[in-house]
Design a binder for these strands. Structure first.
Length: 538
DNA sequence: CTTCTAGTTGATGGC
DNA sequence: GGCCATCAACTAGAA
């Protein structure tokens, strides 16, 4: 028997219990909700008489949580849960076309899988586990090793270390043409893919659904649409994109499909390379389309190699900054009532679409943290993590570290203006009018600063500031000065602290760290030793 | 060890 | 509208 667990495993992948004459395979889908370029699926199907394709729904992540600030579970907003279910329905359909189907199990994955193995495949004496790296282009552990044990902290040094992926010119796993049948499913509590209602949710009004549908089929369709415009692909420059474009977004919007693995990042990479090879010239990392995939790799590597990556405390690449704990300001930001239409419109787009342009994310993240409100980046991270349909633990945390000038990026004087930044792209304020209809009749000269409109204009636009739409929670001019001052002081303190440590306590600290490391090694390092064990679930 | 360079994506004002 | 210097000044990594 074989259990090809893709792309994540509870077990180590270097199993010695290989059974050459195996005939039953269990394919555990976690990420990688796709058929194409799926080495684990291909491996599981090869030579198997029966194949059990399984997805486990963990109630811990999927149960409705009424206490959360938006509909959804404790971990994910309803838009992302729906996106996942759509992806599973599509996977089931695609499996059926190949003579198989998806078996959905419910419960804590470890327990459920062991029960499933016992009930259905118990006759086998040994289990071979195969859990290949296929969610990312590189294995972060390799990059870290090349760099002497620590992850590179700049994109350029990452590029140098990474080089070309080993499979760049080789054919990827081909799409399988047929799959072994599903065997006897015994007495397991196997179900079809549940609906939102099956999971206990009252679904949102369809107007509030994200416009992006989940699934591999949709992912490949979207990829083809982007790739069909070769000129656009070749000339792609991320920073030149328009964050206010919403009828036709300025990027591919393939991130949610990469997040769930509905689209293979390697297949995406090869498709872009193919175009590069057939055009005159093309852009390069960091701004190019391939450069975007490499950002993902860079952040996965940093996250994989940095203990406590998702917090300020005990995170050695994170600046220690005395962020405030103002729940009022946080709630105003989260609920799109800061009084800055550009910021609030983006936050509405986040809630409704689960997706915003990269630069739009920059604007609201900067505003919440070092730019205006000085609220802790972890709080903003939590809101993004819940609401984004593409939220990815490594990438989300990395970008919050970046935008708050806590790591990777340190030029805290460069602050996005919540008033003028959006205006450059969208002087008429169409983006604001769309996501904040209360402001749809505000004249364009006031749309980014409606509090400056004379009362007569506000009345005419049927939008009284302070009643129909909030007054700004802070004065940007004052807030930016205070924030810069606090950032300067915090940086100064971090520097002094570093100096102090190196003079007096370095030896003690080193000793303590070594001891701690050894303790941690014994306890947790075994669990984290493969990338697959580390990637966070849905 | 110190010094130097370059860094995905700021805002402003002058030309 | 695009380009440039200026603002004040950061860090990682290379030299």
């Amino acid at each position: 028997m074989r259990a090809a667990i893709q792309p994540l495993s509870l077990y180590c992948s270097n199993s010695s219990k290989l059974m050459a004459s195996s005939s039953n395979s269990l394919m555990w889908f976690r990420k990688g909700i796709r058929i194409h370029d799926n080495p684990a699926l291909e491996y599981a199907a090869k030579g198997a008489n029966f194949l059990y394709p399984v997805f486990v729904i963990d109630p811990h992540y999927m149960e409705p949580d009424p206490s959360a600030f938006s509909p959804g579970s404790s971990r994910a907003g309803l838009n992302r849960i729906r996106f996942l279910l759509e992806s599973l329905v599509d996977l089931d359909l695609n499996l059926k076309k190949l003579g198989s189907r998806l078996l959905v199990l419910h419960g804590e994955p470890g327990e459920v899988l062991i029960r499933c193995l016992e009930e259905n495949l118990a006759s086998a004496a040994g289990i071979e586990v195969f859990s290949p790296v296929s969610h990312t282009l590189f294995n972060p552990a390799d990059i870290i090793q090349k760099n002497g044990g620590s992850p590179p902290l700049s994109y350029q040094s990452f590029l140098k270390l990474a080089g070309e992926p080993s499979w760049a010119c080789a054919p990827l796993s081909t799409t399988v043409s047929s799959l072994p049948p599903v065997g006897d499913t015994g007495r397991s509590d196997i179900s079809d893919v549940p609906t939102i209602k099956d999971l206990g949710y009252e679904d949102m009004a369809k107007d509030d659904w994200t416009p992006f549908r989940g699934g591999e089929t949709e992912a490949l369709k979207r990829l083809e649409e982007s790739m069909s415009n070769k000129d656009w692909v070749a000339k792609f420059e991320k920073p030149k994109g328009d964050p206010s474009a919403f009828l036709k977004p300025a990027t591919t919007v393939l991130s949610p499909y990469l997040k769930f693995g509905c689209l293979s990042s390697r297949y995406f990479y090869q498709r872009i390379q193919e175009i590069y090879n057939n055009v005159e010239g093309h852009t390069s990392p960091p701004v190019s389309l391939v450069g975007q995939l490499l950002w993902r790799e860079f952040f996965y590597t940093a996250a994989f190699g940095t203990p406590n990556f998702d917090r300020m405390k005990d995170n050695k690449i994170c600046k220690q900054i005395p962020w405030n704990d103002d729940n009022e300001l946080l709630a105003a930001w989260r609920d799109a009532r800061t009084g800055f239409p550009w910021i609030d419109a983006i936050m509405v787009q986040l809630r409704k679409w689960g997706w915003m342009h990269h630069l739009a994310r920059h604007c609201v993240a900067c505003f919440l943290t070092r730019g205006d409100l000085f609220v802790h980046w972890e709080k903003g991270r939590d809101v993004f993590e819940r609401l984004l349909i593409d939220s990815d633990w490594a990438i989300n945390n990395a970008n919050w570290l970046w935008l708050s000038c806590s790591s990777f990026f340190y030029q805290y004087n460069r602050v996005y203006s919540p008033i003028t930044f959006g205006k450059k792209y969208d002087p008429n304020g169409d983006f604001i009018r769309h996501f904040l209809p209360v402001l749809k009749d505000m004249p364009k000269q006031y749309i980014y600063e409606p509090w400056t409109a004379p009362l007569s204009i506000q009345k005419k636009a049927k939008c009284i500031i302070g009643e129909d739409y909030p007054k700004p929670v802070v004065s940007h001019d004052i807030a930016i000065k205070e924030c810069r001052k606090k950032m300067g002081e915090a940086y100064e303190l971090n520097k002094r602290l570093k100096g102090l440590i190196s003079e007096e306590d370095l030896e003690n600290l080193k000793k303590r760290n070594t001891e701690e490391d050894q303790r941690q090694n014994a306890q947790t390092k075994r669990k984290r030793q493969t990338l697959n064990d580390w990637i966070q679930p849905q």
